[in-house]
Write a protein that binds this DNA or RNA. Structure first.
Lengths: 346, 346
DNA sequence: TTGTACGCGTTATCAA
DNA sequence: TTGATAACGCGTACAA
């Protein structure tokens, strides 16, 4: 079913059908009705491919996600969902590309075959070849996270440094003197994953500012790793009384390790950090944390990208989100004798 | 950058460039090299849109996911990931459409504008208008789950009825006489969500076969709902000693409710069901459950769809997966005096 | 072995 | 108010 067929049946030319649909030039009421009747009867819809070829745009955006091999965190998934929803709201389709590296075939298709009008790039690393690739291709893009150097690029990120710094200050105010930062997986951290690095910066800054003792550990993005990680921390660090983390997927494990050690939160031990709201609320007791606004980020990323597609030459905008820290119940005054108490439990 | 530009710079005709790329007719070594050099220099890749228009196929498949408003379960997300990965492996792109209903604009675009060569439809309900829509559009599709009248369509599903029936028999063998089925959310169940309905069938069948007492409850797809749901069950059903569930997202809540009630698993209370492996393994103690092979399903769905696209007229195939039940540690002999024991704890 | 010419479905432009 | 025609970029039958 194509526009020629419609034109034929309505007894008009193809251009008239096209104009009746687009309204870009007046069509007499009678003609329009005849055309509309045929269209309704046959259920005609213009072919997206032909239209894309003619218009030079696909009405599709690309979303580059980490390959599924490394399981996505809840927050990332929520982000994907919100991007797809936000795009659907403005009649844009979303093409998914699972690619971490630069030489990924699916990524290459995206950038060099004009399959999409723009790209949202997730999980950007501090040095990220994909950014250069997109830049050279002249394809509009928006990064979730940002590279080290680039003020050239348009991005949206969370102020992990500020939030973690803030959370450590919060612990310090409660009398904690020895705290740990539970970061993301070794793979990500060594790959130069921005949030991990910036969380680190914020952590060391706060530790220095308050003259505290601090330890940073990397931790896989899953409950098991979280558990092992905290077990190790508790064993090695007798004076430790608090944890701040950006690893939401590890939270259930952190919880279990503390419970197994007989430590009550927050009376014996405090936990805080940056996490998606569902994770924070599922913690027991509910986690005092900065709620990652994944929904919001998805929407903002889409509108930023649309802006960029419309005006590729305008100076890039950056959005650094600093969500408020929701004071729930997982932090409390430090307990000097954490280890003694725990030992007594056993 | 188009094929004409390449041809021009290489001093040949456009068709020669095209043939040099496709290999569909011999091109002399010298010419080929000249062409290749230009292509390499300019980084040329054929425009996907033009190619799609000419070839009549887009090399893209559509994946219809539930709208993000209702958060996706872990298993669904794993499925999305595996579909995208499997598709990428055979150089297919995946277009995401978040749509539950029939009149969704994004869904309509997918089926009526020829944006995709085929569709994978997630979370099918027993009566699902989308299936009819796809059928009428003549677009190849594969369902994850199946409708009531399922002969016409191609689908992959998990044998929830059989697995739940099996799990109840397992509990019966351990001496349980009074068990509950924790199903999915009221919304899904009333919408006629297949897995929920079939789990119900399997449950009632087994209950009848073993002359047990059984209760079915619907439960939201999140930890909180799971907790409330089990709290209610424990309060209302003094004799209850076991739960089987298809609601993996509720597992953490089930766990907490049991812990709060002072019930140890499996000595005081047994839990089993169907769940994604990560959920089962994160349960404490690890859950005896049928491991939903989400990865496998994604791959199978993609290859089934490819098959269908290649030969749309062949009789539809159905794949009913019945993953083995992994015996872990969450089920044990029934304890006659569950309520007495729990009371003693308090 | 290479070049010419056409068509895919739509829309802008020009002509009537 | 409408119709005819060209063009988007590619693939391929056909001619040379």
């Amino acid at each position: 079913m194509n526009i020629g067929e419609i034109a034929h049946r309505a007894g008009v030319s193809r251009s008239t059908v096209s104009y009746a649909l687009s309204g870009k030039r007046p069509v007499s009421a009678g003609t329009r009705k005849r055309i509309q009747d045929v269209i309704d009867e046959l259920g005609y819809r213009p072919n997206a491919t032909a239209r894309a070829l003619k218009e030079g745009r696909t009405r599709t955006i690309g979303l580059v996600i980490p390959p599924a091999g490394s399981r996505l965190t809840h927050m990332q998934l929520e982000f994907v969902g919100s991007v797809v929803d936000a795009a659907a709201r403005v009649d844009l389709d979303v093409l998914l590309s699972p690619s971490g590296g630069d030489h990924d075939r699916s990524f290459e298709r995206l950038v060099s075959e004009s399959r999409v009008d723009g790209v949202i790039l997730m999980e950007i690393r501090l040095q990220d070849a994909r950014v250069g690739r997109l830049h050279r291709a002249g394809l509009p893009y928006v990064g979730i996270g940002h590279t080290d150097d680039d003020w050239q690029m348009c991005w949206i990120d969370i102020d992990y440094a500020g939030l973690i710094r803030h959370s450590v200050h919060h612990l310090a105010d409660l009398g904690h003197r020895h705290v740990a930062l539970v970061s993301r997986s070794p793979e990500l951290v060594t790959a130069g994953y921005g949030p991990a690095r910036r969380a680190q910066e914020g952590f060391t800054a706060a530790i220095r500012e308050r003259g505290m003792e601090g330890v940073e550990v990397m931790c896989g993005d899953d409950a098991r790793s979280g558990q092992e990680c905290v077990e190790r921390l508790l064993r090695d660090r007798a004076g430790l009384t608090g944890i701040t983390t950006i690893n939401e997927a590890a939270l259930p494990g952190i919880q279990r390790a503390l419970a197994d050690a007989g430590l009550a939160v927050p009376s014996d031990f405090s936990v805080t950090g940056v996490a998606g709201r569902p994770w924070a609320e599922d913690f027991r007791p509910p986690l005092t944390a900065a709620d990652v606004p994944a929904q919001d980020m998805g929407e903002k990323a889409v509108s930023l990208l649309i802006e960029r597609i419309a005006a590729p030459q305008t100076p890039p905008r950056h959005i650094l989100l600093s969500p408020p820290i929701s004071l729930r119940s997982s932090t409390g005054a430090a307990r000097a004798d954490r280890s003694a108490h725990a030992a007594a439990q056993v």
